[in-house]
Amino acid sequence: MIVWVKLFAAARQRAGTPATNFSLAEGATVRDLRAAIVQEYPTLADFLPHCRIAVDRDFAPDDHVLTETQEVGIIPPVSGG
């Protein structure tokens, strides 16, 4: 299955793209997606563990099973004051 992923803020800057897609096996989880992201974008390896993955606009745990029709986003940590 093909999963489209949007990258936001610092994740976008580190990857050098606002969106990308990954070919994953049916039944792949958010954990599998994280591994695919790091393989394709090594610049995210130390950063991705600090990011949340949103699936259909809700944060998803690493064991969440993905489908091709879901909207996926990489949400970096936010700071401010």
Rank of each mutant, 00 (worst) to 15 (best):
L48F: 01
D62W: 05
R14T: 05
Q13E: 14
I74M: 03
R34E: 00
A15C: 13
G27V: 08
V78M: 13
E71D: 13
G81S: 11
A10L: 08
I53C: 02
G80S: 09
A15Q: 06
A25H: 08
F8M: 10
F47L: 10
L7E: 01
T67R: 01
H64S: 09
M1L: 10
D32L: 01
D63P: 11
E40Q: 14
E26V: 11
F22M: 07
P49A: 05
A45T: 13
A25V: 08
R31W: 00
G81N: 11
A15S: 12
I53M: 12
F47I: 14
W4K: 15
R57W: 04
V3G: 05
A10I: 03
A60R: 05
D63N: 15
Q13D: 14
F59R: 04
L44P: 03
C51M: 06
A28D: 11
E71H: 04
E26Y: 07
F8I: 10
Q70E: 15
S23Q: 14
I75D: 06
R57A: 09
F8N: 13
C51G: 06
T43F: 00
M1W: 02
S23G: 03
D56N: 15
T67Y: 06
V3S: 06
F8T: 11
V55Y: 02
A10D: 09
H64Q: 12
T29G: 07
S23L: 11
P61M: 04
L44I: 09
V65A: 10
D58N: 09
A19C: 11
P61S: 12
S79T: 15
R52A: 14
D58E: 14
H64W: 06
I37G: 02
